[in-house]
């Protein structure tokens, strides 16, 4: 490794760490316990954990098949789809929220159908939070998995098929095990993104304590009026994210084969 890399690397690290350090400096430690254990904070924390976990599960259930299709199917349409899947990464979250409203809102075509046929209204519910989080977090999972699959190539799958394995067996016994290391890091990335999700949530789901007001939305609200309390909650969010990542997949982020 060329030594000169150390300089930009240190700059990059400083760019990530110094703002967090600024947060730590600004924290009012005397009021910290009281601020993060208030009912509003605990409600927001609980809601955030539950919705982010549900979103991660949804990301895995839907994102794994999508990644396999994108990595293994050929053709121009699939190449185009690969770009389309990344859209939620590029869209400003508020625009993502509006897009979800136009689809699942009362006047959106799917939302209208749901309302008339099943009497279900999605906006302003906890389900809306999960949908918004899944929308923004899914690309992280799909991109990680697709990259891993294409890097690994399809020779194992082809060999298994020539040995007489049916497609479903190949998927279960060859493709999924190939995916596992990347699945860990992809799921952690999705979870982290879902936990921090804010713009699409507030636009699509609104903000009501215990129902749709997740930790980031609560932080946004407090930042208007009480910075100390917003900083305290931000600290809580960071600690939760770090703990969950450390406990759930200690080696996931390294991307090594376990």
């Amino acid at each position: 490794m060329p030594r000169v890399l150390w300089f930009p690397a240190a700059l990059a690290l400083a760019l990530v760490l110094l703002p967090v350090a600024g947060l730590l400096v600004r924290t009012d430690y005397a009021r910290l316990p009281e601020l993060i254990t208030s009912p509003a904070s605990l409600n927001a924390l609980r809601l955030s954990l539950v919705t982010a976990l549900l979103s991660t599960v949804l990301c895995v259930l839907l994102g794994v098949p999508l990644a396999v299709v994108l990595a293994r199917a050929g053709g121009r349409a699939v190449r185009l789809l690969r770009a389309v899947v990344l859209l939620p990464l590029v869209l400003p979250p508020v625009v993502g929220g509006l897009a979800l409203l136009f689809l699942l809102g009362r006047n959106g075509f799917l939302g209208y159908l749901l309302d008339v046929v099943a009497g279900v209204r999605v906006p302003f519910t906890t389900a809306a939070v999960v949908v918004a989080q899944t929308f923004v977090a899914m690309p992280f999972l799909v991109v990680s998995l697709e990259g891993a699959l294409r890097g690994a190539g399809d020779r194992f799958e082809r060999v298994a098929a020539t040995l007489g394995a049916r497609p479903w067996t190949v998927f279960r016994r060859v493709t999924v095990p190939l995916l596992l290391p990347a699945l860990g890091s992809g799921a952690v990335l999705s979870f982290a993104r879902a936990l921090g999700e804010f713009g699409a949530t507030i636009t699509f789901a609104g903000s009501l304590e215990g129902v749709t007001r997740t930790l980031p939305v609560e932080i946004y609200q407090r930042a208007e009026t009480d910075v100390d309390s917003a900083v305290a909650l931000a600290l809580l969010l960071i600690v939760v994210a770090v703990v969950v990542i450390a406990v759930a997949r200690p080696r996931a982020l390294e991307g090594v084969r376990s």
Partner: peptide
């Protein structure tokens, strides 16, 4: 209320 928004423009939206 179904939602308590952060600013009046969000309510209007």
């Amino acid at each position: 209320p179904a939602s308590e928004e952060q600013n009046v423009k969000a309510v209007l939206t």
